[in-house]
């Protein structure tokens, strides 16, 4: 797998429900994450963080001795690690919307294992992107650290916009990223009206990464909606 190194990251899972912890651990280990630790309370979590220095935390909002938001603040004081919240309250979505709390993402219970894995992977890719090298596609490899596409011996540099677009697509690999989401990533907060420019950039990216740009297999169009980057499994 191309992001195996991300699976070496130390993940701290904090939830007061032992059986849920077991399940999430099982989901993570099956996916290939090898270094997972659990904690059932704020206290335990802080101790584990102190001693073990996790690189990623999955936190429940409701804990027996406090809430996940307070725990997040304390963890962030120790180290600036990415955090994903697990919440059982639909209402919490409001709090997370806009991620004003500094959380990187949230998943509302109940969740499908795939959904959780995808979110964790996306946050990890985003947080440790400087370590992201050699993402393998059908016809090439993308070196995000150097902003280059490797095709055999050939190295094709990516422009800033192409790099931004590919980064967003990569973080959401296997999923549709909407036209608006891509425009926003490349052109900022006021992204409307850039659709034609986006199409031009996508065409140029395809010329760099696809075997046959007119029959793309890695960077797929979802008509009317957006684009999807398919990694080589």
């Amino acid at each position: 797998m191309e992001y195996d190194y991300l699976k070496q990251k130390k993940i701290l899972l904090v939830d007061d429900e032992a059986q849920l912890r077991d399940m999430v651990v099982s989901i993570l280990t099956q996916e290939g994450y090898t270094r997972v630790r659990t904690a059932g309370s704020v206290q335990e979590a802080l101790e584990a963080a102190e001693e073990w220095k996790p690189e990623f935390a999955v936190l429940d909002v409701m804990l027996p001795d406090g809430d996940g938001f307070a725990l997040l603040e304390k963890l962030r004081k120790m180290a600036d690690i990415p955090v994903l919240f697990l919440t059982a309250r639909g209402e919490d979505e409001d709090k997370f919307r806009g991620f004003g709390l500094g959380a990187d993402d949230y998943v509302v219970k109940p969740f499908l294992p795939k959904e959780l894995l995808f979110r964790i992977a996306a946050v990890l890719r985003r947080s440790y992107k400087e370590e992201t090298t050699g993402v393998r596609l059908a016809a090439c490899e993308i070196d995000f650290a150097r902003a280059e596409v490797l095709r055999g011996e050939q190295r094709l540099p990516l422009t800033a916009k192409e790099f931004e677009l590919l980064s967003v697509l990569y973080r959401n690999a296997g999923r549709i990223v909407t036209i608006d989401g891509l425009c926003e990533a490349a052109w900022g907060d006021n992204p409307y009206g850039y659709e034609n420019s986006l199409m031009a950039h996508i065409r140029r990216i395809r010329e760099k990464i696809e075997e046959n740009p007119s029959k793309p297999v890695s960077l797929l169009t979802v008509k009317g909606l957006g684009y999807k980057l398919v990694l080589r499994q």
Binding site: L20, I27, A88, V108, P110, F111, L112, P113
Partner: peptide, 21 residues
């Protein structure tokens, strides 16, 4: 209703998670 829905979510996570596995 909010409380019930909250209490159902965690057990349902396990039903859903394990079933998917």
């Amino acid at each position: 209703i909010s409380g019930v829905s909250h209490d159902i979510r965690t057990p349902l996570s396990m039903v859903m998670g394990y079933a998917a596995e």
